[in-house]
């Protein structure tokens, strides 16, 4: 190896060291979920929020849904959408096509459940406003299991 080549090799090794050391002070890209949670901005297409007073039960949301995850269910004299989040792909075409602006996107994105039937969201459950940013972690919105032993601020137990 020539002298020039040797110098370059040593310099290259130091470039790698420098680069590695510099990344010690680099901001981490990952979060320690569930203690730390991703804060998504308003406009994120998370779970739906249903305004019961505006909804007319016309069924356009169920018609446009690409995954057929919406069922229109009766509540007294009125009809409301019910979501099955096991199928929802969060395209929010239902929100776009709602003529009465009864549906809204929320920033709530962790909807994991232990059982399949818990993924069915009734109109009443959809009508609840999403949890605030400062809430402590619960496994899902109102699951009485696992990490949800930490009480959520302002949460009411489900009857």
């Amino acid at each position: 190896m020539t002298v020039k080549g040797s110098i370059k090799a040593v310099a290259d090794i130091w470039t790698a060291y420098y680069s590695g050391l510099r990344h010690l002070f680099h901001r981490s890209y990952t979060l320690r979920f569930p203690e730390q949670r991703l804060v998504v901005e308003k406009g994120y297409r998370g779970r739906h929020l249903l305004h019961l007073d505006r909804c007319t039960g016309c069924g356009i949301c169920a018609w446009i849904c690409p995954e057929k995850c919406i069922t229109i269910v009766p509540r007294g004299e009125r009809w409301y959408p019910q979501y099955f989040y096991g199928r929802c792909c969060f395209c929010h075409f239902c929100t776009d096509y709602c003529p009465e602006y009864a549906l809204e996107e929320t920033v709530e994105f962790d909807l994991a459940e232990y059982t399949r039937d818990r993924l069915v969201w009734s109109p009443e459950r959809l009508a609840r406003p999403p949890a605030g940013k400062n809430d402590k972690y619960v496994f899902s919105v109102e699951t009485p299991r696992g990490a949800s032993n930490i009480p959520r601020v302002g949460a009411k137990p489900e009857k």
Partner: peptide, 24 residues
């Protein structure tokens, strides 16, 4: 992308006649 469309990967952003959201 999330800021623009509301979704991180599958955006469903481009629709016939334009796009679904304006530049935020």
């Amino acid at each position: 992308q999330e800021k623009l469309t509301g979704a991180r990967i599958t955006h469903s952003y481009i629709v016939p006649g334009g796009v679904r959201r304006d530049l935020p």
